[in-house]
C-alpha cells in the first residue's frame, strides 16, 4: 500500500535582508528569496516518514512566483520525488484564506494520505495555514508537532503546548505541521542536487484548479492593511563598559525606572 505525502513549502524573502512593503502595502517580494527554513523541517519529516514506509511518494507543492521554483528544487534535492508549482498572476496579494484554498485544491489534485506543513512562514508567520488546510479538506489537524510518526494508517505526534505536552493521534488522511524542534533538516547531497534536475515539476494555474480569480488575490481577501509605519528606531540607550561598577550602574538605572 503506498503512502502519498504532500509537503507544502513556501518561498520567502531572506529574513536576514531588509524587509518592507510595496506601494500597495503588500509584502515586497523583490528581494532574493529561498525555501523557508521552517519548511525544511517539514520536508525532512516527510522524507523520514517516507523512508519508514514500505512504499511512499513525496510531492512538494508551492504557490508562489516563478522564483519559487528554487524552493521546489531545494526540496527535490533533499529527496522529494516530484513537485507542483502553482503560479498565477491573480494569486498575488492573496490572504491566508485564499492561499489555503489554492493549496487545498492543489493537494486534492495531487492526491494525499498525509499533508505536511511547516509551523509558520518565516515572512507572514501567522502559523494558521495548516489548520485552515485541515478545515478545507475536512480532515484532522495534527499541528505544531515536535515529534511525528506514521504507522498502521495513523499519524501520532507530540505537541508541546502552552500549558501541557500532548500526545496526539489521528487516522489518515490528515494535515500535520512540524516545529523546528522536530529534527535537523538534511543537506542536499551532490547526488541529490544532480538527481533533482531530472525530477518532474508540474505547473498549475487557477484554471487547472477550478478556482475563480475573484476567490483569490486582493479581491478574495477579507482584510485590508490601511497603514504601515516603520517602527521608530529605538533611541540609542546608554551602553557602558563594566569596570567593576556595571552592576551598580544597572541597578541604579532599574531603580530610576521603578523596576526595583
Amino acid at each position: 500500500m503506498s503512502l502519498k505525502i504532500v509537503v507544502c513549502v513556501k518561498y520567502v524573502p531572506d529574513a536576514t535582508g531588509d524587509r518592507g512593503f510595496t506601494e500597495d502595502l503588500t509584502t515586497d517580494r523583490e528581494s532574493e528569496g529561498l525555501l523557508s527554513e521552517l519548511d525544511e523541517y517539514a520536508v525532512e519529516q516527510a522524507l523520514r516518514i517516507a523512508e519508514d514506509a514500505d512504499d511512499a511518494e513525496v510531492t512538494v507543492v508551492t504557490a508562489g512566483p516563478e522564483d519559487a521554483n528554487d524552493a521546489l528544487r531545494k526540496a527535490l534535492s533533499m529527496g522529494a520525488d516530484k513537485a507542483v508549482h502553482i503560479e498565477d498572476e491573480d494569486i498575488v496579494g492573496s490572504d491566508v484564506f485564499a492561499t489555503s484554498l489554492v493549496l487545498a485544491k492543489a493537494v486534492e489534485h495531487v492526491g494525499y494520505d498525509l499533508v505536511v506543513c511547516g509551523m509558520a512562514s518565516t515572512d507572514g508567520a501567522m502559523g494558521v495555514l495548516p489548520a485552515l488546510l485541515a478545515e478545507r479538506l475536512q480532515v484532522p489537524q495534527v499541528t505544531l508537532l515536535s515529534e511525528v510518526s506514521v504507522a498502521e494508517g495513523k499519524v501520532t505526534g507530540r505537541r508541546d503546548g502552552d500549558a501541557a505536552t500532548e500526545r496526539l493521534q489521528a487516522a489518515l488522511p490528515a494535515v500535520v505541521s512540524v516545529t523546528d524542534q522536530s529534527g535537523e533538516a538534511r543537506y542536499p547531497s551532490f547526488k541529490g542536487i544532480m538527481a533533482a534536475k531530472k525530477k518532474p515539476v508540474e505547473s498549475l494555474d487557477l484554471e487547472d484548479l477550478d478556482i475563480e480569480t475573484e476567490q483569490v488575490g486582493p479581491e478574495g481577501s477579507r482584510t485590508k492593511v490601511e497603514s504601515a509605519t516603520p517602527r521608530p528606531a529605538r533611541t540609542a540607550g546608554e551602553v557602558v563598559t563594566d569596570e567593576g561598577d556595571g552592576a551598580e550602574k544597572l541597578a541604579a538605572f532599574l531603580a530610576e525606572r521603578k523596576f526595583v
Binding site: 529605538r234 540607550g237 546608554e238 563598559t241 563594566d242 552592576a247 550602574k249 541597578a251 525606572r257 526595583v260
Partner: peptide, 26 residues
Amino acid sequence: FELVDYGIVGDLFDVVPALTEQVNTR
C-alpha cells in the same frame, strides 16, 4: 546593544550575580 535602553559591556558572570545582590539590597 542597538536595542537597549541600558547596556553593560561586561562578563555576565560578574555583572549578573552582583546585580542580583544590588536588587535584593535595594
